[in-house]
Design a protein around this nucleic acid. Sequence first.
RNA 1: GUCCCCAUCGUCUAGGGGUUAGGACAUAUGAUUCUCAGUCAUAGAACCGCGGUUCGAAUCCGCGUGGGGAUGCCA
Length: 451
Amino acid sequence: MSTKVRTRFAPSPTGYLHIGGARTALFNFLFTRKMGGVFVLRIEDTDQERHVEEAMQAIFTGMRWLGLDWDEGEGVGGPFEPYFQSKRGEIYDRYFQKLVDAGRVYECPAPNKRDKDGNEIPGTGEGTVWRFRFRRDGIITLHDAVCGDISVDYTNEENTPDMVLKRTDGSYIFHLVNVVDDIEMKITHVIRGEDHIMNTFKHLQLFEALGEQPPVYAHIPLIQNPDGSKMSKRDVGAQLGSYPEEGFLPEAVVNFIALLGWNPKTEQEIFSMQELIDRFSLEHVNRAAAKFDIAKCKWMNQQHILRLDPEDFVNRALPFCTKVDLADTPQLRAAIAGVQSKVQLLSEVPDLVRWVQILEYDRDSMDGLQENAREMLNLLAESFRALPEWDAAAAFALIKPLCKEHGVKVGAGMYPLRVALTGCHIGPGMDCILSVLGQAETLRRIEIFPR
RNA sequence: GUCCCCAUCGUCUAGGGGUUAGGACAUAUGAUUCUCAGUCAUAGAACCGCGGUUCGAAUCCGCGUGGGGAUGCCA
């Protein structure tokens, strides 16, 4: 019987949750759910100097927004608490002592420190640090679940200098704590970004020195900017935190990043989380980096919006409207429902329904009016007024015959009406507009229309 | 510098010793619709280069080139 799959997502709270990090979390999540395993969220906050509290909250809220629920970690507990590395000092001391006893670490003068760009700061190398003594007797091979076999020659010290494990202040470096926690938390599969590949050889050495079996590793390709450069915090789409406020649906973002570097071996493009779980496998993860294309991400968002229940759509779009001071009324909700098929992002909704409460004439829309606009409006108003009983559907049904009767194309009659009633040339269907405004307001708006 | 990884339309990708190299986004054109959106149809658009293996290479191998990553008292 095979042991139960245990994975972890181990971000460090030094920046906001990055789209690449979100995808790493997603792949871990999909794999774990597919395998019926346990997904651990561990916070790697050993670098107290760079620790940012809001960044940590952004990780939690970002993962919850995406629907990546973890089985062990902050908020849910678990058998290997605590899940913050800053609180696990004694455990690391114990493992470090093992390395001391085995003669695998040695104390030596500290090198110079580095700034955040990695440049050395001269004259800062004070005190002593502890380094791990790598084995130098051969080539180390990593059997990666995505990349295949990769080997590095550890007899060549130039690229593999003995690594620092313990800082001058007694705290431990990432490599040690990462490996120790993976051992302690019984992690069976490590799915992480390709930028960690070179670290993995160091980690393999650590596992061996500690007499432990390493987990299965799967290194996933990085996400790059459209120009191929490394994506950093300031780039478009880089921060997951910006997606909710820009009007993306979490299911669309999940769908999009899942397909960035993994393919489902089918031509289907739109997937729910459950479908992704059912299909996911590490063998179909690509090895090449993917560029981030915001246009396709928006298209995918649109596809998911189209699939939402109308009521669900209204509820999700409503906050974007109230945020710009539109009042939550039945009329507004009706108008929102009318634009479900017209937006790619929820944030586009307010501009399309503002007319319900605020009538402003859009310059471009006004310029598009033809000479006979006033004439058409008068005719329409006349027939609306003549209705024995107001009924939006009936009013709407009058428009086409009226246009034909007067020898104008339906669009030529509908357009001025739309601009007169909403101030804009895009928005919900005309039947929806008439229904929302009602007879009196419809006639009033035609009346006051300045053309 | 050294080490590691990668390379199919502009982008995400399928395929993989013999294919009209397929799909999606984006773009363009047309149809429909309420001049938006949507839907439908059509079009243009790719195997990085050079050698080798082979009857045959985009596919396998080597070398270049390009891109990315690593080489930290960051993670």
